[in-house]
Amino acid sequence: MSAVPLTHVLMLSAILFTLGMAGLLTRRNLIFMLMSLEVMFNAAGLAFIAAGARWGQADGQIFFILILTLAAAEVGVGLGLALQIHHRFRTLDMDKVCELKETEP
């Protein structure tokens, strides 16, 4: 029985992370951006689990749990923001919501 090589798991993790990042950078809808963020979190978690499994340590899973916590909090706040933005701007297009734009003084 051969173990899954660590490199391959990390490659999977990198692919998922890159896909998430590509989604984050290309999509304009806030909901899709949040989903892409979830993908990226997940990819990071995968890397931790793989490393933890490779050395038989619990730390990898603990960090996964912390990432999970972070993701839960992030989703709570992010979706709240999405609701608020939709309420105020009647859109979720992040390119149209640019109130922080700096104008010439």
């Binding site: 950078l25 390119d95 919501v97 734009k101």
Partner: peptide
């Protein structure tokens, strides 16, 4: 300031790209 002003365009994706 004038040169760097356009980078402050308020667009979330632009900032995310910068960070990436």
């Amino acid at each position: 300031h004038a040169a760097l002003l356009p980078t402050q365009n308020g667009r979330l994706r632009w900032y995310a790209t910068g960070m990436g």
